[in-house]
Design a binder for these strands. Sequence first.
RNA 1: GCGGGAGUAGUUCAGUUGGUUAGAACGCCGGCCUGUCACGCCGGAGGUCGCGGGUUCAAGUCCCGUCUCUCGCGCCA
Length: 607
Amino acid sequence: MHDFRTHTCGQLGEAQIGETVKLSGWVHRKRDHGGVLFIDLRDTYGMTQCVVDEDSPLINEIDKWRNESVITITGTVRKRAEGTANDRLATGAIEVYIEGADMQSAADVIPFQVAEDDGTGEDHRLKYRYLDLRREKMQKNIRLRNNVIRSLREKMWNKDFQEFQTPILTASSPEGARDYLVPSRLHPGKFYALPQAPQQFKQLLMMSGFDKYFQIAPCFRDEDGRADRLAEFYQLDVEMSFVTQQDVHDTIQPVIEQTFREHANFTGEERKVEWLPNLPYKEAMLKYGSDKPDLRNPLEIVDVTEVFNRDDVEFKAFKGVIAKGGVVRAIRAPKVSEQPRSFFDKLNGWAQKEGAPGLGYIVIEGGEGKGPIAKFVSAEATKQLCEIAGLEDGDAVFFVCDMEGKAANMAGKARDAICDSMDAAGIETREKGVYKFCWVVDFPMYEFDEKAQKIDFSHNPFSMPQGGLDALENQDPLTIMANQYDCVCNGFELASGAIRNHKPEIMEKAFGIAGYGMDTLEEKFGGMLNAMRFGAPPHGGLAFGIDRIVMLLADEPNLREVYAFVMNGAYEDQMMGAPTPAMEEQLKDLHLKVNMPKELVKKEEAA
RNA sequence: GCGGGAGUAGUUCAGUUGGUUAGAACGCCGGCCUGUCACGCCGGAGGUCGCGGGUUCAAGUCCCGUCUCUCGCGCCA
């Protein structure tokens, strides 16, 4: 017989009754009834009830074994007595009568319970992640992650993409986030950058003639975290040659759509997968106030600047902003006129927390406007408002007024806040049980950087501008669109990509408009620029955030729930103790001296 | 860097208007129990109430500072 096991803990059933078997696993729970002792033995495959009674000399020894100890038991599979079967357990028809038992590794008292999800704080869970990972939910989430990655990889292979690995110690990529730097010992004062994405490498592979590239690529960005953002994450990175934007979408959309369909019922709730028509960036910003709208939210934004600009509308707060070039955006909330005043007050309070003066609204009742600001809006103007926003009796309409960019943004947030409030008030608004996808297309190539007071790339600077060189030479840069697209699902940006610029002269012009001279271009991206001069195919691609995909499928609020090992919100790993100060020797090797922030030094001296 | 929330037993939490010896559940230790599967019953141990200062006869509770965790803003396309 094998040293450790003949079966797994999820395997035994009535077919094995009478067999002598060996199982190994963790003590999940014990139930001691005096004369009889039950042990639930757990491994990643399942759980098996093992029994020993007072006829056996083992009972006293086994009784002392703590939960989460690793043990091996030998015994006979027997049918459970009438009425004691457990339908909730896959192995619930049988139990193993213990004839031999070995302690492989005794567990100390554990810092939190593995057998139950008691809401243990994340800091504890991360410090003892190996224990946390034993819990059923994490085992399932990590398995989902495995399955999703296998699913994506298989589909890419089936489409004749080649899988690559690209360097981790490399130079800065054009993503725009802060780089993680690694000092070079052999080159004093010089640093490698960890890749924010393998952007240049995948483009270079196209220039090398590989035609269809993909990678499950680790990416690193040194920016503060969010629930859906980590310092290191994985992307399904894809690039193709001789393709249009439509080709890229047609190739990758089935991969994502099918992967979602395969795993959509992971939580036990059946979920639909819907792919909606392409959404131009401009329309997204106007109708949803976001370039990653949650399309389960049916509320839409309209522009009503003209209403508040009328002579018979007296609302000075808005008029003043409009005079400075601002806009008024409106969100219709259907059938909320019955809601108590607190419904509106809470939303107003929410808006103030977001830094707005408030969230003005008008309620339409009997064809008339009601509410705090209704008296400033004439009957004629109210009628026009109803036409533009499609208002009916019993509806309310909320207003955001600011300069265009800020107004769109705030309206987008308000759109979600109103939707949440309606759901909370029992008016079902946000659609449930569905993954709503779409491609957001036609992103602007440039934007005006208010801080630097200059034109800069709005997204990936390697994108091909729509209209090519001609557009760059003859169009107002702020009106030029890029062949750039995002894939959005339920309010999350799942992917971003573009048809790339493969012509050095367009590259030079494009960077020139953003104020980067040929010297900067050569210095930062010289390798790729050179490659373009030796025959570069038109190409494009995208990258999907794998962790976000798994997070959505697992219905988790947080990326940390779908990673085995992960840092906390401040990017510390309390389990491994990272980051740590470097030893003097190491710093010397690297020709580095640490220059601590003065305030930190003061604090440490005080302490 | 900024804002919201949290910090009390190993874990999750309760703790009234500032007032006796700071409680509960799970876990842990000891005992009882032959059919449970979140077993049950009895008993016990376990607390720098994050830390520092202040107000007060009296502080877990009020005030100030500080640290940690978390969510968001900035940042990240």
